[in-house]
Each structure stands twice: as structure tokens, then as C-alpha cells.
């Protein structure tokens, strides 16, 4: 019996028979998926298998045509992205999407606001409560930046950072929303082997330090096999296999999907 999947650990995210169609195209079909608390799950599949679509369904960018999505025990089907973030789902993007006119510090700062009660009124009044709240935000942001070695560039424009730092900053920004589940969309894309090794260390570190569930979509098998506790394989929008990296490596269906069969 393998670990996770709502058995030993309670599941934080569950997809039941989730289907989405774009016109005549069924991008994801009858997908069932469970992610346990502080579990690290990988979602793989050939190009066009529907991985990113599945991601966009979980994060509310698309609403499913059929099926149900539950997060932390409650239905969240078709909730909007910012509401899901409030509930505890954060993500990064395949092609980095930082706020290009904001500094490193402000990129992270913008992501901290959802857990705070004040808005327009406090910002305008600028009283002691506001000062205290802003000081707290600054402490929190700086603490996060320091953990990931980005404190030294806090006042740089985010998009002027080197590629690797931008990827890391995007993860930090997602963490600033205090998620229970972190979704990483191809975090290793465009990285060299050294950077990939570092990324794997980083992901493991995040899981241990923040005690959160992580799910990643990734092409790079070495990265996925190296860090994921469980892997789900998609092909043509359907799940064709699921299991530990060892099981997946041996699964004939998965091998066929990746290598092709006659």
C-alpha cells in the first residue's frame, strides 16, 4: 500500500472526475487526483497532455465543464483565482510572470496583502496601526527574502534579476501568500544541470521548512523522479498511471506514452 492519497494522510486537494472541454476539444477528461497534506506530487505527461490545463483548473484560471474540486475539505469548483489564493493555493508560472515595474521587495509585498484586514482607509489615514502593520509586512517580506538569499537585491526591479533568481523570486512571491498547497509550473524550464540540482534542493527545503503540500508539473524526469513522493501521469487529458517514482518507471503504459508503441 503506498503512502498518501487520502489514506494515511488526510488529503488537502481532491479532483473528482474533472473534465474541461474547449469547443470540441476535451483537454482534461475525468481526472481524479488527490494530494495529501505536506505531500510532494509530480504531474507529468507528454506535450499537450493537459498538465498545464489541470493546473489552471486547480488554480481557478479555468472552470471545469464537469466534475468537482475540493480544497481543504470544501468544494472550490469554479472559484476565482484570487479566492483560491485566499484559501491557500499559490502558484508559479511556466513563463515567469513577475510584476515587471515593481522591485523584488514590492513583488513579494504585493502578495502579502490578502491576509490583512486593512485597505484603503488605513492607507489613507496612515496612523499608528498602519505603521505597525506595514512594519510587520516589511519584516515578513524581508525574512522570506533572506531565507532565499534575495534580501541583497530587494530594491532591484524584479525583471532585471538573472533568470535563476527570477524563478526563485516567483516561488518566494507565491510563498508570501502563506499557501497550504504550492503549485509549480515547470520550475526547471530553461535551467542548466547545476541550477536544476539547486532547484531540487530548494523544493525539498520549502516542503520541510513551510510544511506545505507541493505539486509540480515538469518535463525534466530527473527532477520529478528525484524529488516527488508520488507521480501522476497524464496523456490526452486522461490519467494513465499513478504511483511512486519506482512504480512509474516500470509502468508499461507510461513507458508506452513516453516512448511510443507500435
Amino acid at each position: 500500500m503506498r503512502k498518501g492519497i487520502g489514506m494515511s494522510a488526510p488529503s488537502i486537494l481532491s479532483l473528482r472526475e474533472v473534465t474541461i472541454r474547449f469547443g470540441g476539444l476535451t483537454a482534461v477528461s475525468g481526472l481524479n487526483l488527490e494530494i495529501g497534506e505536506s505531500e510532494l506530487v509530480g504531474l507529468i505527461g507528454p506535450n499537450g497532455a493537459g498538465k498545464t490545463t489541470a493546473f489552471n483548473l486547480i488554480t481557478g484560471v479555468y472552470a471545469p465543464t464537469e466534475g468537482e474540486i475540493r480544497f481543504a475539505g470544501r468544494p472550490v469548483t469554479a472559484k476565482r483565482p484570487h479566492d483560491l489564493t485566499k484559501l491557500g493555493i499559490a502558484r508559479t508560472f511556466q513563463n515567469i510572470r513577475l510584476f515587471s515595474s515593481l522591485t523584488v521587495f514590492d513583488n513579494v509585498r504585493a502578495a502579502t496583502q490578502l491576509h490583512r484586514s486593512h485597505g484603503v482607509r488605513m492607507a489613507l489615514w496612515r496612523g499608528a496601526a498602519f505603521a505597525a502593520a506595514e512594519a510587520e509586512v516589511e519584516r515578513g517580506v524581508m525574512e522570506l527574502l533572506e531565507i532565499f538569499d534575495l534580501g541583497r537585491v530587494r530594491d532591484e526591479i524584479a525583471t532585471s534579476l538573472p533568470y535563476g533568481d527570477q524563478r526563485r523570486l516567483e516561488i518566494v512571491r507565491a510563498l508570501a501568500t502563506q499557501p497550504k498547497l504550492l503549485l509549480l509550473d515547470e520550475p526547471a524550464a530553461g535551467m542548466n544541470p547545476t541550477e536544476k540540482a539547486e532547484l531540487m534542493r530548494l523544493i525539498r527545503f520549502i516542503k520541510e521548512r513551510f510544511k506545505i503540500s507541493i505539486m509540480l508539473v515538469e518535463h525534466d524526469m530527473k527532477v520529478v523522479m528525484g524529488i516527488c513522493e508520488r507521480i501522476a501521469v497524464l496523456e490526452y487529458g486522461k490519467k494513465i498511471g499513478e504511483g511512486t517514482p519506482g512504480e512509474i518507471r516500470k509502468d508499461p503504459k507510461v513507458i508506452a506514452a513516453y516512448l511510443g508503441t507500435e
Binding site: 483565482p81 484570487h82 510584476f99 504585493a110
Partner: peptide
């Protein structure tokens, strides 16, 4: 898109 993913 990124903003709404950050809870904004």
C-alpha cells in the same frame, strides 16, 4: 493573471 494568483 499573476496578480489574481497572488490573491489580488
Amino acid at each position: 493573471v499573476a496578480a489574481s494568483s497572488m490573491g489580488i
